[in-house]
Nucleic acid binder design. Structure first.
Lengths: 206, 206
DNA sequence: CGCAAAAACCGTACTGGGTATGATTTTGTA
DNA sequence: TACAAAATCATACCCAGTACGGTTTTTGCG
């Protein structure tokens, strides 16, 4: 009868417990120094079960970090250019700061930043976002050759850089408020740069 | 007495043999289906020796694919803007086509394209190129905040896209000449886009 | 040449991520 | 209560990569 289940809730709970345990152990001893066996044991499950919930050790940390730029482009209001829609989207994100508890987020960022394997995983995620955005842009502007792909590459790269900068500041101990304020300005700057080109606003240097 | 050695030559030879053997086996049976043990055996060395020459299975294919954009920026002639120097650099690469034997190159590209692990490795390489370029740009235009990093991200992303497009055409059976001709045009287009912005030359679509 | 030191090489055994198998327990429902 | 589906598990396995300790090859030099 689809009771919308006790079962489901228990699964979600177990999943949560595994992820939390993993993050805690990683933060304590470092990503490489913790084995999945230890995580499983500490979370009270078997290794096999852990891998039934998470497809890899990386995914214990990187689960659900993927944003969906392509959807932003597809669902943009009539008459708004793709780039404008994306600018609005990130303006919104920057303005309302970060919703998740800062503590956990910060721990996660620190763990990621300290492990090459995880950083690589992040850039993998970015690459797949880029491909999806490229597909959405190609749909929005057909017969434009490589242009949509070039646009997608530039946009994704810029967004990634903004995120990196933001998180670096948090890791360095900057307050959330200040980091958010700086991010707001940089979102505008970055999209201006995208729209008007790198030769705009250089001035001093040749 | 630093005979500039027999030793050196033999090492280079062994290294070459390992890489060639690996590429051949990967092309025949697929990247995942070949174990490093098999490669080592086929190349007549021990697994340990293979890993003394190559730090990982991936590197058997991805060795030396890294370009050095940062150097292009650092060594640019007096008075030339960084972006102009990079444009010249890639114009040159496109014009003189590909120097390595097309056969081997094509095999390598096919193998890479067919393996997620290798694709991930490529994007890792791109990321480190991006960081180096960012450092060079920051040196070229100090006190510009995030701008150099944003530029580096955009430039690297665009170049990566051009490379991907080029190789995709080769894999699809396009002739080298035609692929090179298209690449030449796209280099110009891509750098125009970088310099003048995405809002330039859109026209049809809003 | 002969010989010692360095460097390359190798066999073996190990670690750790991830998977296959097949058995066992838990849970929703009749 | 009974039963089928789903979740969990112990175990054994595969493969990339490393540690260890020993053997062979190369080289510089007397």
């Amino acid at each position: 009868m689809m009771m919308a289940g006790l079962r489901e809730r228990k699964k979600e709970q177990t999943r949560q417990r595994i992820a939390e345990t993993a993050l805690r152990l990683f933060a304590e001893h470092g990503y490489d120094a913790v084995t999945v066996n230890e995580i499983a044991e500490a979370a009270g499950v078997a290794k096999v079960t852990l891998f039934a919930y998470f497809p890899s050790k990386e995914s214990l940390v990187l689960d659900q970090i993927k944003d969906d730029y392509a959807a932003v482009v597809r669902n943009r209001p009539e008459g708004m250019p793709p780039l404008g829609a994306l600018r609005e989207h990130f303006r919104g994100i920057a303005r309302r700061g970060v919703e998740a508890p800062v503590e956990t987020l910060l721990t996660r960022v620190q763990v990621i930043a300290s492990s090459p394997a995880l950083l690589s995983g992040v850039s993998q995620t970015n690459m797949s976002e880029r491909e999806e955005l490229a597909a959405a842009l190609e749909a929005a502007m057909p017969d434009a050759g490589v242009v949509p792909r070039l646009m997608a590459a530039q946009i994704t790269a810029v967004i990634t850089t903004l995120q990196e900068t933001f998180f670096q500041r948090l890791v360095k101990g900057e307050s959330l408020e200040k980091a958010v304020r700086l991010l707001e300005d940089e979102v505008e700057l970055a999209f201006d740069l995208l729209e008007r080109g790198l030769s705009w606003q250089e001035g001093t240097d040749s």
